[in-house]
Simulated scan of single mutants.
Amino acid sequence: MNDEISTPVRNMSLRLSPTPRGARLARLLTAEQLRSWGLPLDPATQIVAELAANAATHGRVSGRDFGLVVYVVGNTLRIEVTDTRGDLQPQPQPFAPDAESGRGLVLVDALADKWGVTPGLSPRKTVWAEIDVSP
């Protein structure tokens, strides 16, 4: 019997305002969902915090929410944050040691097993990250 077939897919999908409050809510709701699934909070909540903050800061378009999807298939937890600024592709940037921002994607790159960007229906893009949640 194939383990992936017998393992249920667990998922959460939300629409949030592209604001600092929406980004905080993304992290908090992800933490609660992971607790209910019996999964570790870190590094997933940190990745969600960074991707949601980027969506609220760089992907913000007035009147358009950002989407958060978190799901588990097998031993892989996948985080997807979709915003409506498909014209702006995220790239890790060099940062000054004394900078107060600009480390988000560097952290995501360090914490995730893999991450990337997938174009969506115009004007959307999805930034995703995957982590192994094997026991």
Rank of each mutant, 00 (worst) to 15 (best):
M1G: 15
M1A: 09
N2V: 02
I5P: 00
T7R: 13
P8E: 13
S13D: 14
S13G: 04
L14P: 01
L14A: 14
P18N: 12
P18S: 14
T19I: 08
T19W: 04
G22R: 05
G22Y: 04
A23W: 12
R24N: 09
R24D: 09
R24W: 06
L25K: 12
L29W: 04
T30W: 02
A31C: 03
Q33T: 06
G38K: 06
P40S: 07
D42T: 04
D42C: 10
A44P: 01
A44W: 00
V48M: 14
A49E: 14
L51V: 06
A52I: 02
A53Y: 13
A53V: 13
N54D: 11
A56V: 06
G59F: 07
R60G: 00
G63R: 10
G63W: 05
R64D: 10
G67A: 11
V70R: 01
V70G: 03
Y71R: 15
Y71A: 10
V72R: 15
V72F: 01
V72E: 14
V73Q: 11
T76Y: 00
R78D: 06
I79L: 09
E80R: 08
V81Q: 01
D83L: 08
T84N: 11
R85C: 08
R85V: 03
G86H: 09
G86N: 04
Q89I: 15
Q93D: 07
P94Q: 03
P94S: 06
P97T: 10
P97K: 11
A99S: 11
A99F: 05
G102D: 04
R103S: 06
R103I: 13
V106S: 15
L107M: 11
D109P: 01
D109R: 14
D109G: 14
D109I: 03
A110P: 02
A112H: 04
A112P: 05
D113M: 04
K114I: 02
G116P: 12
T118A: 12
G120I: 08
L121M: 08
T126D: 03
W128D: 06
W128N: 01
I131T: 08
D132L: 10
V133G: 10
S134Y: 13
S134N: 12
